[in-house]
């Protein structure tokens, strides 16, 4: 069945039909953001908590806009670190939220599996805004929507994900979403930053970024974090840019008009050159716009009444 269930934990757990439902639902929400009054009463009276254990300005703001444009009441909670560090376990946090009768929780956490952990313990809808290295489903969805806007389809598209795939939840969500909708996916980066057995998920491994540029219709360029150099995965950011950077010179040799995506925030001059990020091939800003629409769609679809209400109501007509 297409309806989404209680939570959005990851694209791995959704069917192609469900993913398409979300993308199709996002379309009318794009229009809402263009109106003079960017608000519809669809989630009026719902309380939503943005529970962010990792600092994130852009994702949190995007969710906040999505929630407010649907007329929901939102509360931002910036929680500290891991359960061990802050002294209140995730279980207790979950129970407290449930005791306050929160309708929905948007959670970002540094541990993989945290979103599922929360979802299994509270009745509220749980939306994963990024859990450790596991998934960032709304980012995957907005990337899909952006590609679909540009190319009219996902099936048969060749998308290369370039960068630190090992530590990237964005990469994993993209891989699941793209494969389920019929795209061909490749990953490209230094071998130290590619996960074990990644090919078994159904993706091709391309050793050099030049190969990716030759092959792909679109590149999704991942952010490279300074910590990776400090942890010894790569010798330096400078070398990373020289060998793997998506630069204007490299793109000039592309056989097609490559579309460039980036989940942000960008390290200009490291994984991507400014000219590329600001250039005509970049869809980085449309990604941001689509982000609000996709998140509105997800909130709208998840906030549907509980299944027993659906049976009691029965109709579904607009009279």
């Amino acid at each position: 069945m297409t309806a989404l269930g209680k939570d959005l934990i990851g694209l791995e757990y959704l069917s192609a039909e469900q993913i398409e439902l979300i993308l199709d639902t996002a379309e009318p929400f794009k229009e809402v953001s263009e109106r003079p009054i960017k608000k519809v009463p669809a989630l009026r009276g719902k309380t939503i908590v943005n529970l962010f254990f990792e600092a994130s300005t852009r994702t949190r703001i995007s969710f906040e806009f999505a929630e407010k444009r649907l007329s929901a009441d939102t509360v931002n909670v910036a929680a500290q670190g891991s359960s061990v560090q802050k002294g209140e376990t995730l279980v207790d946090t979950a129970r407290n939220l449930e005791a306050m009768r929160i309708d929905m929780v948007v959670i970002r956490h540094q541990s993989s599996g945290a979103a599922q952990f929360l979802a299994q313990r509270i009745r509220s809808n749980v939306i994963n805004a990024g859990d450790g290295k596991h998934e960032h489903p709304t980012q995957g969805l907005l990337d899909l929507l952006t590609l679909r806007d540009r190319f009219g389809r996902i099936r048969g598209l060749k998308v290369a994900i370039v960068g630190d795939v090992l530590h990237s939840r964005v990469a994993r969500s993209n891989i699941w979403g793209l494969l389920k909708l019929g795209a061909e996916v490749a990953v490209c980066g230094p071998a130290t930053l590619l996960p074990r057995k990644i090919e078994e998920l159904g993706v091709t491994v391309l050793p050099r970024v030049e190969d990716a540029i030759q092959w792909a219709d679109a590149l999704n360029v991942l952010r490279l974090q300074l910590e990776r150099m400090q942890a010894g995965f790569i010798p330096s950011l400078r070398e990373y840019n020289r060998v793997f950077g998506v630069t204007t010179e490299r793109l000039a040799r592309a056989p097609k008009d490559l579309v460039i995506l980036h989940p942000g925030p960008m390290n200009r001059g490291v994984e991507i050159d400014s000219d590329v990020a600001d250039g005509p091939h970049s869809v980085i800003l449309p990604q941001v716009t689509n982000g609000v629409a996709v998140r509105m769609a997800v909130l709208y679809l998840l906030a549907g009444g509980s299944p027993d209400w659906a049976q009691a109501a029965g109709r579904g007509e607009e009279r």
């Binding site: 009318p28 009463p41 669809a42 906030a303 549907g304 049976q311 607009e318």
Partner: peptide, 20 residues
């Protein structure tokens, strides 16, 4: 008018939103 319905919270699976 889907997003303005007064019964949106009661209806089960979310109705599809058309173009405005």
């Amino acid at each position: 008018i889907t997003l303005y319905r007064d019964d949106l919270q009661v209806v089960g699976p979310r109705p599809v939103v058309g173009e405005t």
